[in-house]
């Protein structure tokens, strides 16, 4: 695992092991409107990804030790950030600057515009470009995802000390990983990319809420519940 002679910290290897396999999209066939079909297919995928994300969160070391209230709060504020780390990672190097939501759901700028996702396209491409320049390793991606959840600034926090410990353990794992690669400055760079991730996720949440409330796009129950929690 470590090119520099092993590391004591087991958090990142555990995150790599428990990283869920990417889901495939189920093409919606309820409408002839191709843009609406794209949107419904995407919302169905997001709903299933959310379900997987909740199961994944429970496996992050330290998460299940948090109070149920804090587990809920962190997920309610951080879920979109955690999901978008995956989308931006998959979209790296994609042809025609597509957004790769799944291997069988790749949307270019025109398709996003037609589906009412122009705003989302713009911010997600920006995030993807940033990660591309940083040349993230898989270890960094899984850690970034867990940190996005841990750092979601949920308010109020039920047990601040436990949440702080949860954050510290992930931060420590990242620092240990980067120092084992002799690239200590990367931990800071990764942390400095979190504001853009937060901003991108906020725009994504606004986009889906607008589509649902103003354009009556039907959403699955779990996705709607999590969007409403924002």
């Amino acid at each position: 695992y470590s090119p520099c002679g092993g590391t004591r910290n087991k958090v990142i290897p555990h995150l790599l092991l428990t990283e869920p396999a990417p889901l495939a999209a189920n093409q919606d066939e309820s409408t002839n409107d191709s843009s609406l079909r794209t949107l419904l297919t995407l919302c169905d995928l997001l709903n299933r990804e959310l379900l997987v994300l909740i199961g994944w969160a429970k496996q992050i070391p330290g998460f299940s030790g948090l109070s149920l209230v804090d587990q809920m709060s962190l997920l309610q504020s951080g879920w979109m950030e955690a999901l978008l780390v995956g989308v931006a990672w998959r979209s790296q190097g994609a042809a025609r600057e597509e957004l790769v939501f799944a291997r069988n759901l790749r949307l270019d700028e025109g398709q996003c515009q037609a589906a009412g996702l122009a705003d989302l396209y713009e911010v997600l491409r920006h995030l993807t470009a940033k990660y591309e320049v940083m040349k993230l390793s898989p270890e960094e991606v899984v850690t970034l995802k867990a940190m996005a959840l841990a750092n979601s600034d949920a308010d109020p926090v039920d047990c601040p000390d436990s949440v702080q410990r949860f954050q510290d353990e992930l931060h420590e794992a990242l620092q240990e990983y980067e120092s084992s690669r002799r690239e200590q400055q990367r931990a800071g760079r990764l942390l400095m990319s979190l504001p853009l991730l937060r901003q991108t996720a906020d725009r994504a949440v606004q986009t889906f809420l607008r589509l649902h409330h103003h354009h009556r796009v039907p959403l699955h129950k779990l996705l709607l519940e999590m969007l409403d929690a924002k």
């Binding site: 909740i54 149920l68 997920l75 309610q76 129950k221 779990l222 519940e225 999590m226 409403d228």
Partner: peptide, 20 residues
């Protein structure tokens, strides 16, 4: 927590079926 019923259920149990 009625408003966040599904998340609550999913976190409490990994096995109980949830209406999505």
């Amino acid at each position: 927590k009625e408003k966040h019923k599904i998340l609550h259920q999913l976190l409490q149990s990994s096995t109980s079926p949830v209406d999505l």
